[in-house]
Measured scan of single mutants.
Amino acid sequence: MAEAPPRRLGLGPPPGDAPRAELVALTAVQSEQGEAGGGGSPRRLGLLGSPLPPGAPLPGPGSGSGSACGQRSSAAHKRYRRLQNWVYNVLERPRGWAFVYHVFIFLLVFSCLVLSVLSTIQEHQELANECLLILEFVMIVVFGLEYIVRVWSAGCCCRYRGWQGRFRFARKPFCVIDFIVFVASVAVIAAGTQGNIFATSALRSMRFLQILRMVRMDRRGGTWKLLGSVVYAHSKELITAWYIGFLVLIFASFLVYLAEKDANSDFSSYADSLWWGTITLTTIGYGDKTPHTWLGRVLAAGFALLGISFFALPAGILGSGFALKVQEQHRQKHFEKRRMPAANLIQAAWRLYSTDMSRAYLTATWYYYDSILPSFRELALLFEHVQRARNGGLRPLEVRRAPVPDGAPSRYPPVATCHRPGSTSFCPGESSRMGIKDRIRMGSSQRRTGPSKQHLAPPTMPTSPSSEQVGEATSPTKVQKSWSFNDRTRFRASLRLKPRTSAEDAPSEEVA
C-alpha cells in the first residue's frame, strides 16, 4: 500500500521540484479525499487562508506561464504608474523644462484676455472677434484635454484613487474654476456660431469669465498662502490700524457733515460726507466734493493729517511682513540645501571615528588635552595620597570615625582645627580638600554678606603664586578674593596644593 505523501509545513519547496517556489498556508490543510486516503489533490490556500480556484496559477517567480503573465502585467503596471506620476508632476508640480508648457498656457490665456479687451473697442471689434473665435476653439481643445489628463493623473495619489477620489480631486477650487471656464468657452462658441440675436450679448458677457483663467496660473496657491501667512502673522497690528482709521473716518465725516450741510449742497446727507471722507483719507482725492466753510476746511485738514497716518499703516505693516517672510523662506531654502550635506558629513565622520582606533588626527579633542595637561583624576589621586601619608595610611573619614581611648597616647600629631565659614567644625583632613566650587561659593557668600568690609582692609600687593609662602596660607580663606572669576591669580592660587600645619609646630611643606 502506497504511503501518503508527508504533510509539508512552511514555505519550503517540495523535494524533486527545486526551481518551484510555492506559497503554502501556515497550517497544512488537505482535502477530505486526501485525509481519507483517496487520490485527491490537496486544496490550495492563499496567504489569508482563502481557498484558491482550481485553475488559478500559483503565485511565485517560477510558476510557469502564469508567472510570465504576472511579470508582464507587473511591468506594465509599473510603467503605467510611472507615467501617471510623471504627468501629475508636470501639471501640478512643474520643475525644470516642465515650465515651458505652463508658459505656453499663460501666453494663450493672456492673448485671449487681450483680444477680449480689444473686442470692446469699436475700431478693432470685428478683427478681434474673428481672432478670438479661432483662439477659443484652440483653448477649448487644449483645456478640455488638460482637464481630463489632470483628473486621470491624480490617481497617482492615494487620496485621489478610484471614482470617489477623482470626484474629490474635481471638487478642488482650481478644478472648479477650470470647469466653469470650459463651460463658458463652449457656451460662447455655441452662441457665436448660431448667428442669432443673442450671440452678441452672450459673447460680450461670458467672454470675461475667461479672466478666471489668470487665476489658474498659480494652481498651488503659493501667492495666496504667502499673503495669508503675512496677514495672520500681523493680524493684531492690522486690526488696530484699521480700527483707529475707521473711527477717524466716521468722526471726521460726521463733523464735516454738521459744518457743511447748510452751506454746501455736496454734503446734503451723511452718506455724501462718508464718501468724501473715504476718498480723502485714502489719499485718492477725486475733487467732486470739497468743503466751502472755514470750519469745514479746518476739520477736514486736521482729520486728514490724523487719519492718513492710520490708513497708511497697513501698507507699511504688510510690506515689512512680506520682507520678513521672504527672508525666512530664503533662510529655509539654505537650511534645506545644507541639511543633507551636513548629515552626510556627520555620518562619514562617525564611520571614520568608529573604524580608526588610533585617531591620531583628533588634535583638538579632550583626549588630546588630557594627555598634555594633568587630568583631574590625577589631581584627586594626588590629594588622596598626600592625605593618607599624613594620616598614617588612613583616609580622612576613617580618621574622624576612629575612637580614641581616654589616657591613651595619640598616634597622630595634634592638628589645628579649622572652621569653614557658615558651618560647624569639620575634620581637619578636609581643609585642604576644598575644591574650586567651594572656594568660589565661599567668595560669593563673603561678597553678599559684607562687601563694604573688603574695601576697608589695607590693599594687598598682588604677587605671583611662585613667590607666595606656603606656610602662610594655612586656610583657603587666605586666598585673595576677587569680584570676578576671570582673575588668573585667584584661579592659579585655588589650584595650588595647600599643606596642613599642626598647632604646635607648623613646618612648611611643599608638595611638588
Score class of each variant (00 low, 15 high):
Asp218His: 07
Gly316Cys: 02
Ala323Val: 10
Glu92Val: 15
Leu274Val: 08
Gly316Ser: 07
Phe303Tyr: 02
Val109Asp: 02
Leu249Arg: 05
Ala312Asp: 02
Pro173Arg: 06
Gly222Ala: 07
Met214Arg: 01
Arg331Pro: 07
Gly316Val: 01
Thr280Ala: 09
Phe311Ile: 09
Arg166Pro: 09
Val114Met: 07
Tyr270Asp: 03
Ala252Asp: 14
Tyr243Phe: 09
Ala259Thr: 06
Val186Glu: 06
Ile244Thr: 07
Asp266His: 13
Ile308Met: 13
Ser229Thr: 03
Asp272Val: 03
His334Asn: 10
Ala191Thr: 10
Gly319Cys: 15
Tyr257Asp: 07
Phe303Ile: 11
Ala312Val: 07
Tyr101Ser: 01
Phe267Ile: 14
Ile244Val: 06
Pro94Arg: 10
Ala315Asp: 04
Arg297Gly: 04
Ala304Val: 14
Val103Leu: 08
Gly285Val: 06
Tyr257Cys: 01
Asp178Val: 06
Arg331Leu: 03
Gly228Asp: 05
Arg95Pro: 14
Ile140Asn: 08
Glu237Asp: 06
Ser235Ile: 04
Gly38Trp: 13
Asp178Gly: 15
Thr278Lys: 03
Asp266Tyr: 02
Tyr286Cys: 03
Ile197Asn: 08
Ala323Thr: 07
Gly34Val: 14
Ala301Pro: 00
Asn264Asp: 09
Gly49Ser: 15
Leu318Ile: 14
Leu255Pro: 01
Gly287Ala: 03
Glu336Lys: 07
Ala233Pro: 03
Trp152Cys: 01
Gln327Pro: 10
His330Gln: 14
Lys236Met: 05
Gly319Val: 11
Arg297Trp: 01
Ile180Asn: 10
Arg220Pro: 05
Asp262Tyr: 05
Arg150Gln: 06
Ser253Ala: 11
Glu237Gln: 08
Phe198Ser: 01
Thr278Pro: 00
Lys333Thr: 15
Leu345Pro: 10
Val230Ala: 13
His234Asp: 13
Tyr101Cys: 05
Leu258Pro: 01
Ser50Cys: 12
Trp276Arg: 00
Ser41Phe: 14
Phe303Leu: 08
Arg339Ser: 09
Leu226Gln: 00
Ser320Ala: 07
Tyr270His: 04
Val231Ala: 01
Ala312Thr: 07
Met206Arg: 05
Asp288Asn: 03
Gly296Ala: 04
Glu336Asp: 05
Arg166Gly: 08
Ser268Phe: 14
Ala190Asp: 00
Thr293Pro: 00
Ala154Thr: 14
Ala199Asp: 11
Ala271Val: 06
Ile284Thr: 05
Val100Asp: 08
Leu91Gln: 15
Lys337Gln: 10
Arg150Trp: 14
Asp288Val: 01
Pro291Ser: 03
Leu313Gln: 05
Lys261Glu: 05
Ser185Pro: 11
Val109Ala: 06
Gly162Arg: 11
Ala170Pro: 09
Val215Glu: 01
Phe335Tyr: 14
Ala259Gly: 01
Arg338Pro: 06
Ile148Leu: 03
Trp224Cys: 00
Gln210Arg: 00
Leu318Arg: 11
Ser153Phe: 06
Leu83Arg: 11
Pro94Ser: 15
Ser153Thr: 06
Val326Ala: 12
Leu247Pro: 04
Trp86Arg: 14
Leu324Gln: 13
Tyr286Phe: 07
Phe246Ile: 11
Leu107Ser: 09
Arg331Trp: 10
Val256Ile: 05
Ala263Pro: 10
Asp266Ala: 07
Phe198Cys: 11
His234Arg: 06
Pro94Ala: 07
Tyr243Asn: 13
Leu255Arg: 00
Gln332Pro: 01
Phe169Leu: 15
Asp288Glu: 04
Gly307Ala: 02
Gly165Val: 02
Arg93Pro: 12
Tyr160His: 09
Glu260Asp: 04
Ala202Glu: 10
Thr278Arg: 05
Ala28Asp: 13
Val298Gly: 09
Leu238Arg: 00
Val176Phe: 05
Ala300Pro: 00
Gln329Lys: 06
His334Arg: 08
Lys337Arg: 10
Leu249Pro: 10
Arg207Pro: 11
Trp224Arg: 00
Tyr101Asn: 06
